[in-house]
C-alpha cells in the first residue's frame, strides 16, 4: 500500500535525523526536526488546554530535549514520533504539576515515573522498528468512532467522563469503544488480548 510505504519512509527519515543529531550534533538535521515536529507538539499542547504562549514554549522545550537526549533514542525500541510524543507528554505533565511557575526543566522526575523495570524477555517486544508503521496502518482500519475516542484519550487532558460529554455519548459507550479499539489494535498487531 502506498500510504504504508510513505509512512515507513517518513519514520526512517525522522529516525535518521535524530541519529544524525546524536552522532555528530547535526544542526541542519535538528532544524528539519524542529520545523516538522515543533508545530505538531504545539497543537498537542494547545489541545491539552495550554495557552498559546505556554504551548509555544513547551514545544520549544520538547525539541530542546530532542537535541539533548538524541543519544538516548534507540530506533530498535521506539519510533521517532512515539519517542517525541513521550518527551512532550512528560513535559506537559511537569508543566501541569508546576502550574507553569518556571519554564526550564527536563522533567527528569516525570521520566523516572515512566521507567518501569522491564527486563526484555522473548515475549517483551513486538518488532518495534516496524511498530510505528504497523500501528498507523492499524489505526486507519478502526471505525471513525473508535479512532475519535482513542485520539481524545491522548490529546485532551480529560477524563473519560469529559470525553463522553464532548462526544455526547454515555460514559459506558466511551469505555466500550475504547476497549473495542484496543482489542482490534492488539489483534492486528498480533498481541494477545
Amino acid at each position: 500500500m502506498q500510504a504504508d510505504s510513505q509512512r515507513a519512509s517518513d519514520g526512517r527519515h525522522w529516525a535518521s535525523l535524530i541519529q544524525a543529531v546524536a552522532e555528530r550534533g547535526d544542526r541542519a538535521a535538528f532544524a528539519s526536526l524542529f520545523d516538522h515536529f515543533a508545530p505538531l507538539v504545539k497543537t498537542f499542547m494547545r489541545r491539552s488546554g495550554l495557552a498559546e504562549a505556554s504551548a509555544d514554549e513547551l514545544a520549544q522545550e520538547t525539541l530542546l530535549l530532542v537535541w539533548r537526549k538524541a543519544s538516548l533514542f534507540d530506533p530498535s525500541t521506539a519510533g521517532a514520533t512515539a519517542w517525541i510524543f513521550t518527551i512532550a507528554r512528560n513535559l506537559r505533565i511537569d508543566a501541569h504539576r508546576r502550574g507553569r511557575r518556571d519554564g526550564l526543566t527536563d522533567a527528569a522526575d516525570i521520566d523516572a515515573e515512566f521507567q518501569i523495570d522491564d527486563a526484555p524477555g522473548p515475549e517483551a517486544n513486538m518488532a518495534t522498528s516496524q511498530a510505528e508503521i504497523r500501528v498507523r496502518a492499524a489505526l486507519t482500519t478502526l471505525s471513525d468512532d473508535q479512532r475519535r475516542v482513542l485520539e481524545l484519550s491522548f490529546y485532551e487532558e480529560k477524563a473519560h467522563g469529559d470525553i463522553a460529554r464532548i462526544l455526547q455519548i454515555p460514559l459506558g459507550t466511551v469505555k466500550s469503544r475504547l476497549r473495542l479499539a484496543m482489542n482490534r489494535l492488539r489483534g492486528l498487531l498480533g498481541e494477545p488480548s
Binding site: T81, T86, M126, E132, V135, L139, F154, Y155
Partner: peptide, 10 residues
C-alpha cells in the same frame, strides 16, 4: 503500543 498510538496521533 499506546505510546505508538500517541506518536501516530501527534
Amino acid at each position: 503500543l499506546m505510546e505508538h498510538v500517541g506518536g501516530s496521533v501527534l
